[in-house]
Design a binder for these strands. Structure first.
Lengths: 241, 241
DNA sequence: ACCTGAACACCGTTCAAGT
DNA sequence: ACCTGAACACCGTTCAAGT
């Protein structure tokens, strides 16, 4: 009972269409998918549906799921490469890197956990940012082991705030979770937590641990500015130069 | 063909044993499982195997996978509650909180990503740490919106370093990934990245982005110390008090 | 209250086969 | 080189049924 006009072949086997998919196109689609539905729901099969191909095609082009994510991270981080030195003092150059990094991640907030909490399977990290940090810190007078410490502290600070600001929301029953969180905060016991109870009007949904929206809906710009200022000022006070 | 001595019942249905499992026992086992195999491999079914029960039992006790993880995070964070004020200046008290937080997370490094990059579905966060931070920062002279900014900056700094230090390694082909990373670093182009190339002996596997082991195997104590000092000094310089 | 077991709708990945 | 499709060994969660 073959369909009229159909060539003879094993039943149910469609002819491969020349989709013309490239590695780059798969990566771009993966980033779109993650932007749209988040990291929790991301799957190779879902990505394949978006692309209109068989799931195995994604594996063929990228290898496996982790490697897809690694390429997505690389794409997001490409935006982050700092400008060449501009005659400004190192503190100001460093501050620019902090601001630009946050902006780059904010463009793809769902990727934030991969950048902040995973050594993603990326064997060829972009070293441009590393060099830029080392340059600024060298100018500040750090060298040798002190340069290593300063670099590590800076790198941690660079990623830390934004990772938390854009922390992933619970995947399910978001409205219920939010309502529970709101009620829990409103029931703060002033005898157990006097300062918190007093300051709650300033803090409700605008402070870590005390919020029910993340930085996508409630950005924390002014806190980030203080964070950057504190860190760079502390670094400057410890710089040999 | 029922086994001799077996009571008559539907074939293959074993009698429920009185396992006597409690919610707390399930949570404790979940933490053990994550300590042992990491977050990537953690599953309700695997946890059930460890407990010797049907997977549905875990769901019955905890609700779902996310709620299991939320309870695990709560357990780890319980270790983190700071000591009561001790007459020391606020800078020193804050420093103690930083050190204690890192130690608490280091005891369960595989949980780090949940703490640093997810607003875990926890409707009843422990507010003891929040109050301790607010107390120290109030003593420093911060109030109102300035207190909020200082609290957010501190909270971000508190979690940022350790989350990255303990970032999850790639789940598969670890040896291959490590070898590739080593080779990539050794091939650093001195004309493109002169400072990095020169400083590589100090940085290899001891600096973010340039390492193939995480903080479990290669702790970054001295960098963390600088990070904490910088942040608190910067904060002190901006404190109204 | 606490447990088993079957079932459902998903996964990632491998393998053989097509063009 | 690039694609389809079947198959395998997993998932989380729901539902009915036992004691």
């Amino acid at each position: 009972m073959a369909t009229a006009g159909a060539k003879r072949r094993k039943p149910g086997r469609a002819p491969p269409r020349a989709v013309g998919l490239t590695r780059e196109a798969v990566i771009a689609a993966a980033l779109e998918e993650i932007d749209a539905i988040g990291l929790h729901g991301f799957s190779i099969r879902g990505l394949a549906r978006r692309l209109g191909v068989n799931p195995t095609v994604v594996v063929w082009h990228l290898g496996n799921r982790n490697l897809v994510l690694a390429e997505v991270v690389k794409t997001v981080q490409r935006d982050l490469v700092p400008p060449r030195p501009s005659g400004q003092p190192w503190q100001e150059r460093l501050r620019q890197v902090f601001l630009r990094s946050r902006e780059a991640v904010r463009r793809h907030p769902n990727v934030a956990p991969l950048i902040g909490a995973e050594i993603v399977s990326n064997a060829r990290p972009d070293l441009g940012l590393v060099e830029a940090l080392l340059e600024a810190l060298s100018e500040a007078g750090f060298a040798g082991d002190a340069l290593r410490r300063a670099y590590n502290a800076t790198q941690a600070a660079l990623v830390g705030f934004t990772t938390q600001e854009l922390a992933q929301m619970p995947g399910e029953d978001l409205p219920g979770w939010r309502e529970e969180m709101r009620q829990h905060l409103d029931r703060t016991d002033p005898s157990a937590h006097p300062i918190l109870a007093r300051e709650m009007p300033h803090l409700r949904n605008r402070a870590f641990i005390l919020r029910w929206q993340n930085g996508v809906e409630m950005p924390m710009d002014d806190s980030f500015a203080l964070y950057v200022d504190c860190f760079i000022a502390g670094l400057a006070a410890r710089a040999p130069g």
